[in-house]
Design a protein around this nucleic acid. Structure first.
Lengths: 210, 210
DNA sequence: GGTTCAATTACTCGAATGGGTAATAATCGA
DNA sequence: TCGATTATTACCCATTCGAGTAATTGAACC
């Protein structure tokens, strides 16, 4: 028996099996109801319009549109939308971008069911809940200096394995300019050399390895 | 109605929701039956003894014991065990190690249900089936020269961001020795410098970024 | 016993990298 | 309009790195 006002949940995840299982888990809670599900970010937006869920459980890696963009798009149209990110990937940068984009919580897919249900209820009640572990990660990310546009480009090329000279010609600037950017990058990333910078960029999710 | 001799499947994956959903998907096929499931690699081994499944669907990232080790352990005791790897992670090295360890197939979690069911049937019939995309990846891995023990250690330290001098003192050898290893590493990995080598190691899954 | 391969070290040399310092121009928010 | 940030370039200098070449040792394999 459902209560009169169950919390209406929408699932966005590209694994059908996961959606199915998650739906079953959630439905076993008397106050939760799965009202919509999809594996596509773009589809999620129009589905939100139709289903008007109380809570969205959103994966980050989605075909077509990324999870963060989907959150931004939804919240642009529905500023009160309550989105919880539920994903396997958890770099500092992922967490940071998700929260920045307006997500109310961030959970990993191996989160115990009871914690998940509690988080859904808490977020539905208007709270913003983060597991302590991830909150620490977020704090770590916050402390890290913001990279400028140009620095990010240089870092991206660095991760592609390009030399200073190559990066310079890629960006149509002098090699000394690239060196200058690298110097500030090293400081901001707390590293000593380019290899550490490249690894750090990948580890923190600043640059994707795709 | 089940047939008299359904294919008995065991699920090993640390996400309860995924197990639940996958079980439901598989059970919807009349000739498939989920007879056991667990989220733990070590537990999988004794569960195999009890349940004697025809097919094991195995994730690679598991708490405690890794998926590859679990496959090896199972096949040591039951050389005829038919294991299909079902995972989100798909570096060349992952695929390679899985097949080396005796897995009969390797699928990604977003595999369409019908393909999955067909693969289970094919493997149960004794075939070794790989999606063309992953077969290519495996071929790419096969072409890559095997790294020696020492080279792998050097690469691991390189990915940790250590300099030649540091790697040398870590391994109690001369810096020239490290340089020599790096030279052969560059050739084997088809790269020009240490940064590319580090990225390549991570991208191919030779070194984990944990 | 010869061969192949991994591991080790050494030496040279040129190129790439990183640190320090500094100057200029543009943009931007207060 | 002033200070801050960003982007740009330049120069110097020490260190690190990478390529080439080569030799030795020990284990594994046949």
């Amino acid at each position: 028996m459902k209560k009169k006002n169950p919390i209406r949940v929408m699932l966005v995840d590209d694994h059908p099996a996961f959606r199915k299982g998650m739906a079953a888990l959630l439905e076993s809670e008397p106050d939760l109801q799965v009202v919509a599900e999809t594996g596509d970010g773009r589809h999620a937006i129009e589905l939100f319009r139709q289903a008007a869920p109380d809570i969205v459980l959103m994966d980050l890696r989605l075909p077509g549109m990324g999870g963060v963009e989907a959150i931004i798009a939804i919240r642009k149209e529905f500023p009160n939308a309550r989105v919880i990110v539920l994903t396997t990937f958890d770099t500092d940068e992922d967490i940071y971008r998700a929260i920045q984009s307006g997500a109310k919580s961030f959970l990993l897919k191996d989160t115990p069911e009871d914690v998940l249900a509690d988080t859904i209820r808490a977020v539905h009640a208007g709270e913003q809940k983060l597991p302590p572990k991830l909150a620490d990660r977020l704090a770590a990310r916050q402390k890290r200096a913001e990279l400028s546009q140009r620095e990010t480009e240089v870092l991206r090329l660095l991760v592609k394995g390009r030399s200073n000279k190559e990066i310079a010609s890629d960006l149509f600037v002098a090699e000394d300019t690239v060196k200058a950017h690298l110097k500030t990058l090293f400081v901001k990333l707390h590293v000593q050399d380019r290899t550490q910078a490249a690894i750090s960029a990948v580890r923190h999710g600043i640059v994707q390895l795709d």
